[in-house]
Design a protein around this nucleic acid. Structure first.
Lengths: 222, 222
DNA sequence: CGCAGCGTTGAACGGCTTCAATGAAAGTGG
DNA sequence: CCACTTTCATTGAAGCCGTTCAACGCTGCG
């Protein structure tokens, strides 16, 4: 995806300069190490940085006043998150497991490619990916059954993680539930049901899945 | 799936120049008139243009193979839509009522402010708004009850439309249902229930609502 | 070994959906 | 202008999927 995505809708203005798909390898962003369940930033914080996942996994989420939680996304190695639309964080972010990030000061131009056009491309690409995912996820939350939600989730995660055989699940059932708009019980039941039907296999330690019938899972997608 | 992006995240590069909140009045975008329920573009089309609503209303949506529909947003006068993350439309767009648009060729620099920085700001601002709305909407779809969904919808629409007294509802109950992840029946029942409870009033022609107790509606938001 | 946390399973409940019918308003053609 | 049709909104009744409440099992770790 990267900039091919960005270019289509945005046209020549942002393509005037060279296109960089990622922050440079020599990006000077400060490394930050966070352990499992540690907060990276909270709703309401001032968004001074944005981040790129080096290793581990991150969840970003919103809360209702009574505690109901919606995880709007999991961020895996290579993903950029924490770009914010205002002077206050609209989401909170926490590490799912022990995680390493690079933090980029939003005001630090040197942290980026050094070229405004390319920076715009970089950032816009991240936004477009985020928006595309959000659209997919709204369809999932608004119109899909529990089975379909879990199938979509597993396929999407497998694709992003590039997992061929067994797919690692860094997040808990509660995280998955709050991402898919279900309860932990429903997620668990759906997993066992999919296993019984031969679409997946569940290793003993429960933090992984083997996708045994991707075609069938894909059929559940719509 | 991080949605957040930002002025904050964008920082100095995109804010270097003057910020233009809207395409200029003299924008040379071609006017396009579409009547109610007419297609503006379809899923799979090549995204040659993006649009700004002059008058009327537009819905953008995604479909599942069996016809289930999720309307990811309604676009009112002043809104920009049709910015796309790829060489294929991921959503379809239709006019809700008779609508006037300005269409901007993505490759037509003259259609914009003439300044790449300002264009970036314009486009990025539109994306940021879309992303913020998407986050709100995922929380709604994943975690809110029917009552809360309808309340959120009405308040959000009222805010955007700037309606003080009676709020016009250009879209059908089916459109609202497909936006809120409910059925038409549930939307209708929830309306009558809110009316019975004195939070809203429903005029005879059903394409409007009066918000009679915004505080109570807001309490339903979370 | 025993505790604590997470995941799974069971049973009853409930909110929303589904199916079906009625009502109301808008368009159509004579 | 008025019957007729069509479309949309509302209401009712029954059903179902996912939730809620509760118990149990597994696993890892002190």
């Amino acid at each position: 995806m990267q900039l091919a995505l960005a270019t289509a809708g945005l046209g020549p203005a942002l393509n005037a300069g060279p296109v960089h798909a990622h922050l440079r390898p020599e990006e000077p962003g400060a490394r930050r190490r966070v352990e499992a369940d540690e907060e990276i930033y909270a709703e309401g914080d001032r968004p001074l940085h944005f981040y790129k996942v080096v290793s581990g996994a991150v969840r970003t989420y919103r809360l209702l006043s009574d505690g109901r939680r919606q995880i709007d996304g999991f961020h895996l190695p290579g993903d950029i998150f924490g770009l914010e639309a205002g002077d206050e964080r609209r989401t909170g972010a926490e590490a799912v497991v022990d995680t390493v990030l690079t933090a980029h000061r939003r005001s630090d131009r040197a942290a980026l490619t050094g070229d405004a056009g390319a920076l715009a491309c970089e950032v816009v690409a991240a936004m477009l990916r985020a928006l595309a995912r959000a659209q997919d996820h709204m369809l999932l939350l608004g119109r899909k059954t529990a089975r379909e939600r879990v199938a979509s989730f597993l396929l999407g995660l497998a694709e992003r993680a590039g997992a061929d055989g067994v797919l690692a699940l860094p997040m808990s059932r509660a995280d998955i539930a709050d991402h898919l708009g279900l309860t932990v019980e429903s997620v668990s039941r759906t997993f066992t049901q999919l296993e019984r039907d031969g679409l997946i296999a569940l290793p003993a330690h429960r933090r992984a899945v083997e996708l045994r019938d991707r075609a069938a899972l894909r059929r559940l997608d719509g």
